[in-house]
Design a protein around this nucleic acid. Structure first.
Length: 658
DNA sequence: GTTAGGG
DNA sequence: CCCTAAC
């Protein structure tokens, strides 16, 4: 699913289309495509904003898209995707593409039609653009489809940097399918920076940016950030990031600016070669690469992929669109499923090779502060359906600037490479999914793949999220040596093994009566805290919802009490945070409650007397008691055939409310 | 790896 | 919820 693309444009909405890729490489088949198109899945928030879809959400619809329209490639946000396809959400806020939702077929059909429509439009634009290009007319309203899968371009038109791409939508389908052309940076900003009010209208925040874009100093056909004074760099920084900076480090400033211009998160590890009016980013692919050497590599020595990109870029220039175009070449996406990890590794390697001065903590802190300010009003995002995805196979990296405060709270992370840990600034460590509404659920970690340090970091992360009111004091007291962001999917292995089941499961999001309290809706606020013995212990409380209880009861009725793992598998596949032990514990409590309940259900005070505790409908409790009594009579093991074990009454009762 | 039970 | 003994 790493396939992809590059459609991008600048503020003017200029497009260039090098061709639509209509191949149908599977999501799972990351083969490189010459002219792919990336459709970035986003979610439409209630206020109309677009929020980058989480991997899970992408996966949620990915299969469908692939199935229904093999030509469309939905790519989880990797920071590389440039397109946004927003899948309309139902009023419940849930993506309406869930195959498990029987009633979504119509929606799927509509979506599919829309997607196809979009494609048609793209084709048209592309053709138009080709004509324009042939005419040498630098019109600013054409489609710019980068032929390179992941190349981002920062166009400098008339000496103005236009790296910030506005949100653009196709009116006719805007209501439900937002098709966004933007470069990586623009896209990300639009989608993930609520504070900027992006995505709210065609006139995006880019206007602000574009107006402020200063001229890059040009010298001998080269754009040299180096020749800018600190003051100028500050200015550039300001217009680029929309905020002031007090950093005096020119290199740092240049790096940051370059990051923005190239929409890259690892500029720091990148050497720039500015030539022929282009900023060509050079990457050292392997640790063997020596940045000192790499920095001297000119475009002629680019890797094959880069060379292709370069040619393409040249072609664009040759068309006379703008001879001041600055093109940032970004290494083609690593198709490895462990892309994120690899990328990280590369960064580290590059860093090591180049011996680039790592941003000091101070800088990082400044970033954290500013960024958190900028993004502070983040909307909580429920991140459900984590389990749906075979998502885990891929890690996604986003540009550093899209990193969010929760991650930035930590200065660095450690990346283990070749046995040695390397400290990497968190700035370069990116979230794999869109920011969540619920700060408390910043992350969902993969317990099985979590190292002790990672766990520590998790703790710290939770620490950083004020939304979690349950953080034990000891967490605050403990000092975190380092923090990471769990790059891989947090999906427990078990869940991955039965994606089908997960998909079939009813919407987890649906929490009728007892929805999780605000700020506590996510499923991944699982945090661990150190124990006295040095081990890690889960420290997270998640109230059982009525839906969960019902599921539990149902599960018990089906499988019998005691077969928790089975119940977990069948009824809680989508509730990764509910372990079989949790089910068991809950059942225990339910039993207690049900038997504590007055024999006469008519008594209203059954649950209410337990102030604070969730009012479990007496029906449920009755059912629990019934099952309990039944179980006492019929050992669970015999009830492998639960129906038989359950007996007739069970069935009848179930139909009532389960 | 699960389950049961205590904390 | 966590921990752990017992299976």
């Amino acid at each position: 699913m790493e396939t992809v693309v590059g459609i991008e444009d600048n503020d003017d909405g200029k497009f260039e289309d090098s061709g639509l890729d209509r191949s149908s490489s599977a999501l799972s088949s990351p083969k490189q495509i010459s002219n792919p198109i990336v459709y970035k899945l986003v979610r439409v928030e209630g206020d109309g904003r677009l929020v980058p879809a989480t991997d899970d959400e992408v996966m949620e619809v990915g299969d469908f898209l692939e199935y229904e329209n093999s030509e469309m490639h939905v790519v989880a946000d990797t920071g590389q995707s440039l397109e946004c396809i927003s899948i309309e959400r139902s009023s419940s806020g849930k993506l309406r593409l869930e195959c498990s939702e029987g009633s979504t077929e119509a929606d799927l059909g509509k979506l599919n039609a829309k997607l196809q429509y979009i494609e048609q439009i793209l084709q048209k634009v592309k053709e138009e653009e080709k004509q324009r290009i042939s005419c040498g007319s630098p019109v600013h309203s054409h489609v710019n489809v980068d032929s390179q899968c992941s190349a981002d371009k920062c166009l400098v038109t008339d000496g103005k940097v236009q790296s910030e791409t506005p949100y653009q939508e196709i009116p006719s389908i805007a209501s439900s399918l937002n098709y966004t052309h933007s470069n990586q940076s623009g896209s990300m900003d639009q989608c993930s920076r609520p504070s900027e009010g992006v995505m709210e209208s065609g006139s995006s925040a880019s206007a602000v940016h574009s107006n402020l874009k200063p001229d890059l100093s040009m010298s001998d056909g080269e754009i040299c950030l180096d020749k800018l004074s600190i003051r100028e760099l500050h200015e550039l920084f300001k217009v680029t990031f929309g905020r002031e900076t007090t950093v005096k480090d020119k290199q740092w400033l240049k790096r940051r600016i370059a990051m923005s211009l190239t929409n890259s998160c690892d500029v720091s590890a990148t050497t720039f070669v500015i030539k022929d009016n282009k900023i060509v980013r050079k990457f050292v692919e392997e640790s063997s690469g020596n940045m000192n050497v790499a920095s001297l590599i000119s475009s002629e020595n680019m890797t094959e992929e880069e060379d292709i990109n370069f040619k393409d870029s040249s072609a664009v220039n040759a068309c006379g669109i703008d001879d001041k175009q600055v093109v940032s070449e970004i290494r083609l996406r690593n198709q490895n499923t462990e892309y994120g990890l690899e990328d990280m590794t590369n960064q580290k390697e590059q860093r090591a090779a180049k011996r680039i001065r790592r941003p000091t903590k101070r800088y990082i802190e400044e970033l954290s502060e500013n960024e958190s300010k900028e993004h502070s009003p983040r909307l909580p995002v429920s991140n459900k359906n984590m389990e749906l995805g075979h998502v885990s196979s891929t890690s996604h990296v986003r540009p550093a600037r899209n990193t969010f405060s929760e991650v930035r709270t930590c200065g660095t992370r450690f990346a283990s490479l070749g046995g040695s840990d390397v400290e990497i600034p968190c700035v370069s460590w990116i979230r794999r999914s869109r920011p969540r509404k619920d700060m408390a659920s910043l992350m969902k970690f993969h317990p099985s793949a979590m190292s002790e340090t990672e766990k520590l970091s998790n703790k710290l992360i939770e620490h950083s999220s004020d939304a979690v009111g349950e953080i034990p004091d000891k967490v605050f007291k403990s000092r975190m040596p380092a923090t990471f962001h769990q790059p891989s999917s947090s999906e427990p292995e078990k869940e991955k093994q039965c994606p089908v089941i997960a998909t079939i499961e009813p919407r987890q999001e649906l929490r009728p009566k007892r929805a999780d309290p605000p700020g506590h809706t996510s499923d991944d606020n699982i945090v661990t805290v150190p124990t006295a013995k040095g081990g890690m212990r889960r420290k997270h409380h998640r109230a059982w919802t009525l839906v969960e209880v019902i599921k539990l009861v149902e599960g018990v009725s089906r499988c019998g009490a005691g077969r928790w793992s089975e119940i977990k598998r069948l009824s809680f596949a989508s509730y990764s945070y509910r372990t079989s032990v949790d089910l068991k514990d809950k059942w225990r409590n339910l039993l207690k409650a049900s038997f504590a309940m007055t024999p006469a259900p008519s008594d209203e005070g059954i649950n209410s007397r337990k102030h604070g505790t969730a009012p479990i409908p007496e029906k449920i409790l009755l059912r629990v008691r019934e099952l309990a009594e039944m179980n006492s009579q019929v050992p669970p093991n015999i009830s492998s055939n639960k129906v038989a074990a359950g007996g007739g009454s069970v069935h009848e009762d179930r139909s009532g409310y389960l």
